[in-house]
Simulated scan of single mutants.
Amino acid sequence: MYGVLNGTKVVEQGTFITGPCAGMMLADLGADVIKVETVGEGDPYRSFKNGFYSAHFQAYNRNKRSVCLDLKNTPDKEMFHDLVRNADIYIQNFRPGVAARIAADRETLQGLNPRLVYCSISGFGSDGPYAKRPVYDSVAQAVSGFLSVAIDPEQPRFVGPALADAITGIYASLAITAALAERERTGRGRFIEISMLEAMMHFAIEPFMGYFALGEIPQSADRPRLAQAFIVRCRDDRLIAFHLSSLDKFWDALVEAANIPQLAFDPRFSIRQLRIDNYGALSAAMNEIFSQKDREDWIRQFAGTDLPYAPINSISEVVDDPQAKHLGMFVPVAGRKQGATTTLRPAFSFDGERGTSVVAAPLIDEHGDVIRQDLRLHSNTWPARKAAPTPG
């Protein structure tokens, strides 16, 4: 963990990905995130695949503490409100109306703590014609227009990772940290609302601007064609990606490195605009050429060239990638009781310092006894956090 947000206190009532991702981003920066879960149930993502500590849950809940509270129970509700009174940030991703039913709405919580930064994450927003509709990642990707510029319309398939969920959580954490900075000046909290629809529309800002500026409806093939990005299949059925961009030097580098002068002399590909116009034909020609050797042969051939390319790695191949290792991306999980022993560090560094470990995602109610005892004894203070465990 980093110490950038040390001393920042967060109450998270997040489930699945959006809320937990926002909380994780803050926890990775050093914030003390207490995850409030439902008694007997917990975050449904715990049992997403198997058991009660799924890899999916581990991914978005590291560096946090867990306490289970029954907000229909008056003593537990009072403990929850005591947490909020001493918190800096509150995060929830309930469907509209749920927060009010459990006394976790903005009016109640900011009434208890005017300095609270309250973040509400939803699928479509708190009101409007879609507000009460259920939303998951794939739905948000579809309605936002993002999928239309990301999939092959002839063979439509969802993009693998839960992009809309994670991106919404990251946008939420950005807004939260901005509100914290403002609070230093004003002394008051903010009420932040963000929906998956808004986040994914903003994420797709470039195709939207293409539509507004040019009056054209962007297609999924537009950006690869204009950016001269290609995926080619090698003899061993493995894939390589190229991004030749707008600079002729990269096309020239490909021609030289792959020893394919015949493409340079082909009148269909002689200048960049023609390569754009004949993108399909060029892609087919490149695939024919690259099918003549295995991927490793091509990669050895490209060593030392000024060519923007990369093998399309599997996750297991990335684990052995020399640049990923050099950057120290894989770190141990401290305080682990079950689950993975290794994970990814946060993507950023501060003053050259990178994260060297993370604390394991909590077991359900793992810190509940200590937190509840602290709240009973000292309701006007934030429950103390022990020093982070060391890896190993």
Rank of each mutant, 00 (worst) to 15 (best):
Asp277Ile: 03
Met201Phe: 01
Ser245Met: 15
Pro261Asn: 12
Ala150Leu: 09
Gly145Arg: 10
Asp351Glu: 15
Asn287Pro: 01
Asp321Ser: 10
Val370Thr: 12
Gly40His: 05
Tyr2Ala: 00
Arg183Tyr: 13
Thr341Lys: 14
Glu216Ser: 04
Gly7Leu: 06
Arg46Cys: 06
Asn93Gln: 02
Lys325Tyr: 01
Ser220Pro: 04
Arg133Ala: 11
Gln301Asp: 05
Asp277Trp: 01
Val159Leu: 11
Tyr90Thr: 03
Ser148Arg: 05
Ala334Ser: 12
Leu109His: 09
Leu239Trp: 06
Ile364Pro: 00
Pro332Met: 04
Ala388Gln: 13
Met200Ile: 08
Val370Leu: 07
Ala142Glu: 10
Asp88Met: 02
Val4Gly: 00
Phe265Tyr: 10
Leu263Cys: 11
Lys132Thr: 14
Leu363Gln: 14
Ala281Phe: 10
Phe330His: 01
Arg385Cys: 06
Ile91Ser: 10
Ala55Thr: 05
Phe290Pro: 00
Val36Thr: 09
Thr341Phe: 06
Phe302Asn: 01
Leu327Lys: 11
Ala59Arg: 12
Leu226Phe: 11
Ala264Ile: 04
Ala221Phe: 13
Lys72Phe: 03
Asn259Tyr: 03
Phe265Ala: 14
Gln301Leu: 11
Gln219Lys: 13
Arg46Ile: 13
Trp251Gly: 00
Glu41Lys: 15
Asp137Arg: 02
Tyr2Phe: 14
Gly145Glu: 10
Pro311Gln: 13
Gly40Cys: 12
Gly145Tyr: 01
Pro20Ser: 07
Asp297His: 13
Gln338Ala: 12
Thr381Lys: 12
His367Glu: 03
His81Trp: 08
Ile205Asp: 12
Asp374Val: 00
Glu216Lys: 10
Ala140Tyr: 09
Gln92Asp: 13
Pro224Gln: 09
Ala99Gly: 07
Ala285Tyr: 06
Pro311Met: 01
Phe94Arg: 00
Leu307Asp: 02
Val331Arg: 07
Arg115Asn: 13
Ser379Val: 07
His243Glu: 02
Pro129Met: 11
Val331Phe: 08
Ala384Trp: 05
Ala229Tyr: 06
Phe242Ser: 12
Ile170Glu: 04
Pro96Gly: 04
Met79Phe: 05
Asp320Lys: 07
Ala31Met: 07
Tyr211Met: 14
Val318Glu: 02
Asn113Tyr: 09
Ser148Trp: 10
Ser148Gly: 15
Ile89Ala: 01
Leu344Gly: 00
Ser245Glu: 09
Ala384Gly: 08
Ile205Cys: 07
Arg385Thr: 14
Ser283Ile: 03
Thr74Cys: 04
Gly355Val: 03
Val117Ala: 04
Leu180Ile: 11
Thr341His: 11
Asp369Trp: 02
Ile271Met: 02
Tyr136Glu: 01
Pro207Ala: 05
Phe52Met: 02
Thr168Val: 10
Pro311Arg: 08
Phe52Thr: 14
Glu353Phe: 06
Val255Asn: 01
Pro311Trp: 10
Phe212Tyr: 13
Gln92Arg: 05
Lys325Ala: 08
Val117Gln: 05
Val358Arg: 04
Ile121Gln: 07
Met1Thr: 09
Ala229Trp: 06
Pro322Leu: 13
Ile192Leu: 15
Met1Ile: 06
Gln13Leu: 14
Ala253Asn: 14
Ala257Thr: 10
Leu112Gly: 07
Ala166Asp: 08
Ala103His: 11
Ala164Asn: 03
Thr341Ala: 15
